Computed example of a mutant assay.
Amino acid sequence: MVPVIAGIYGKVVEKNGNTVFVSTNSGIVFEIACDTQTCEELEENRECYLYTFLSVSQDGVALYGFSDRKKKDLFLSLMKVSRLGPKTALKILSSEDVDTLISMINSQDVEGLSKIPGISRKTAERIVMELKGKFESTVLKDLKTYHESLEALVSLGYPEKQARKAIKEVLKDGMSTSEVIKEALRILSRR
């Protein structure tokens, strides 16, 4: 029987890309693959708690970590989709925040999901077909405006993470893409 490692508490001793090394009080250092947002939240020489999932396959053993339970739950749901492994599930989680991904799945936004690097249209369709209705609805409703605004801000040279955050601050039902971009630019220019 494979041991279950549901979470790890310890100090971040090193970060390398999307891999984090966490030292526990027992002296063991765990190598944990994380989504981009979780890695950005963690700081070296600071204590952290990560919700984890231990993957055992013919390729080897890997430990995946997430800053909150919602991310881990979505990761586990994505892994249940046929022909979708942990590396692809992690790539999907790294592309957008959890609420946006859930909105995309619930609203059957195959177009938006297929824009995630490495996700084909067929894979996006499979994700929607197998997971739609499995999550509580989230706040983000107008995904077309969201995607268009994000694309525009990134093409203007703003980092994707900052652009996403600004859009979510201003996006309200009924806003046009140009209104969202204008309001988001106002926020981004202050930072």
Score class of each variant (00 low, 15 high):
Val110His: 02
Lys91Gly: 07
Ser103Leu: 00
Leu156Tyr: 10
Glu179Gly: 05
Leu54Cys: 10
Ile116Ala: 10
Met175Ile: 06
Gly65Arg: 03
Gly157Lys: 05
Glu14Met: 13
Pro86Glu: 04
Ile5Cys: 11
Ala124Glu: 04
Val61Phe: 09
Asp73Ile: 06
Gly17Ala: 13
Pro159Gly: 04
Val20Lys: 02
Thr123Glu: 01
Ile5Thr: 12
Ala163Leu: 01
Glu130His: 05
Glu43Arg: 15
Arg190Cys: 05
Tyr51Leu: 07
Ser94Leu: 10
Gly85Asp: 05
Lys122Gln: 12
Asp99Ser: 15
Leu153Thr: 03
Leu131Thr: 15
Lys161Asp: 07
Glu41Thr: 11
Thr52Asn: 10
Gly10Ser: 10
Val180Pro: 01
Thr177Tyr: 04
Gly65Asn: 07
Lys91Ile: 07
Val29Asp: 05
Ser55Leu: 00
Tyr9Lys: 15
Lys165Ala: 13
Met1Tyr: 08
Arg186Tyr: 12
Thr38Asp: 10
Gly17His: 12
Ile127Glu: 06
Lys141Thr: 05
Lys15Arg: 15
Pro159Ser: 09
Lys165Gly: 01
Lys132Val: 06
Cys39Gly: 14
Gly118Asn: 09
Gly60Leu: 00
Glu151Arg: 05
Lys71Cys: 06
Pro3Arg: 02
Leu76Ile: 07
Glu40Asp: 13
Ile105Ala: 02
Phe53Val: 02
Ile105Arg: 00
Glu96Asn: 14
Arg190Val: 12
Glu169Asn: 14
Leu171Gln: 15
Val170Glu: 03
Gly133Met: 06
Val98Phe: 06
His147Gly: 01
Val81Leu: 04
Met175Asp: 05
Gln162Tyr: 08
